[in-house]
C-alpha cells in the first residue's frame, strides 16, 4: 500500500513536470512562428488599427511568460479558451467576415470541440489496438516459442512487410480496393461505426510489427531463462511452464512496449489516418487547426495528448510492478 502511494505521488509529480514542460514548449512555439493570429481571425480586410486593438484586448501583445501564466490559470479550471476560427455553431468562419471586430462569445469553446471529437478517436484507437493485438500476439508468441523455426521466420517477414507499408499509401490502396472497387466497407467520413473499420485496420497493420517483435523477443528470451528448464526438471510440464510462467514473465516487456512505444505511435498515426480518411476525430481537428492557425485548439490537443501518454505510462508501469515485484525495488 505504501508502495502504491509512494509510486503514484512520485510519478504524478514527475508527470506534472513533463506536462508543464510540453505546454511551455508548444505555447512558446506557437508564439514565435511567423504570422499573426489576429490576421487569421479578422481576415485580410481588417485595418491594422482594429487588429492591434483586438490583439491588445486578447492579451496577445503581453510578454510570453505573462500570457503563459494566464493560460495556465485558465487551464487549471478546465477552460482551454475559445477557437480562433470556429463559431459556436460549428462552422469554420476564419477570416471571411471583413472588418467586423472579433467577438469572442460566438466562437466555439475548445473543450467542447475536443469532447465532440474524442469518442470517435477512442472508437478508432480501441478498435485498432484490439485488431492489432489479435493479429500480433498469436504470431509473436508462436515465433518466440519456435525461435529459429518457421513461425519465427513467418513473423520476421510479416513484420518486416507490415512495418514497410507507409500508412497513408496503405490507406489509399485499401480505400481504392475495398471501398471504391470492392464496395465492401465505407471509407470516407463517418456515419456509423463501420466507417471506423478500415482506418482501424490500417492502424493495426502499423502497430502489429511492434507487438510481434516484442512478444517474440520476450517469449524466446524467457524460454531461455534457467527457471523454465529447472521447472521441468522439478516435475512440472512444459505446457504449464509456458502458460503459467513464461507468458506471465513475458508480459512485462510487452507492457513496457505498450506504454512507451505503441501508445505514442498509435496517437501519432491516428492523426494522419484520420486526415487520410477524413474521419472526424481529434486528429482531423488538430490538422485542420494547424492549417487554420487555430492556436488554442493546437495547444489544447497537444497538452491533452501529452497528458494521456503520461497517464498511460504511469498505469502501465504500475501494472508491471504488480507482475514483477522486483521492479518495486
Amino acid at each position: 500500500m505504501i508502495f502504491a502511494l509512494d509510486f503514484f505521488l512520485r510519478r504524478m509529480a514527475q508527470g506534472l513536470v513533463i506536462i508543464v514542460l510540453v505546454a511551455m514548449l508548444i505555447f512558446t512555439l506557437l508564439r514565435v512562428v511567423p504570422g499573426d493570429p489576429v490576421r487569421t481571425m479578422l481576415g485580410p480586410m481588417a485595418s491594422a488599427e482594429v487588429a492591434e486593438q483586438t490583439a491588445q484586448k486578447m492579451g496577445l501583445r503581453d510578454p510570453i511568460p505573462v500570457q503563459f501564466a494566464k493560460y495556465v490559470g485558465q487551464v487549471v479550471t478546465g477552460d482551454f479558451g475559445r477557437s480562433f476560427v470556429r463559431s459556436a455553431q460549428g462552422a469554420s468562419t476564419g477570416g471571411s467576415r471583413g472588418g467586423a471586430t472579433f467577438d469572442a462569445s460566438n466562437r466555439a469553446p475548445v473543450m467542447g470541440l475536443i469532447l465532440t471529437a474524442v469518442p470517435y478517436s477512442l472508437l478508432l484507437a480501441g478498435l485498432a489496438l484490439g485488431i492489432s493485438l489479435l493479429i500480433s500476439l498469436p504470431i509473436g508468441i508462436a515465433a518466440g516459442l519456435k525461435s529459429g523455426k518457421w513461425p519465427d521466420r513467418l513473423a520476421l517477414y510479416l513484420s518486416s512487410i507490415f512495418v514497410s507499408l507507409p500508412n497513408i499509401w496503405l490507406a489509399l490502396v485499401l480505400i481504392f480496393l475495398v471501398s471504391v472497387k470492392g464496395g465492401l466497407l465505407p471509407a470516407i467520413g463517418y456515419q456509423n461505426w463501420t466507417y471506423a473499420i478500415l482506418p482501424a485496420f490500417v492502424l493495426a497493420i502499423e502497430l502489429s510489427p511492434v507487438f510481434i517483435r516484442s512478444a517474440s523477443v520476450a517469449v524466446s528470451s524467457n524460454m531461455l531463462e534457467p527457471y523454465v528448464a529447472a521447472g521441468q526438471i522439478r516435475g512440472l510440464s512444459r505446457a504449464r511452464m509456458i502458460l503459467v510462467h513464461v507468458l506471465r514473465n513475458a508480459m512485462i516487456p510487452l507492457l513496457n512496449v505498450l506504454g512507451i512505444q505503441a501508445i505514442g505511435l498509435l496517437l501519432g498515426s491516428l492523426f494522419v489516418i484520420e486526415y487520410a480518411f477524413n474521419y472526424p476525430g481529434v486528429g482531423l481537428l488538430m490538422i485542420n487547426a494547424v492549417f487554420q492557425r487555430d492556436f488554442p485548439v493546437i495547444q489544447a490537443i497537444a497538452i491533452l495528448a501529452c497528458t494521456l501518454l503520461v497517464l498511460v505510462n504511469i498505469l502501465v508501469d504500475f501494472a508491471a510492478t504488480n507482475i514483477d515485484r522486483r521492479l518495486q525495488y
Binding site: P226, Y227, R234, R248
Partner: peptide, 14 residues
C-alpha cells in the same frame, strides 16, 4: 535435482 544456482531456478515473479 538441485543445481548450483538457486537464484535462477524459480520464476522470479511468484
Amino acid at each position: 535435482y538441485i543445481g548450483s544456482d538457486p537464484t535462477t531456478a524459480l520464476d522470479p515473479t511468484l
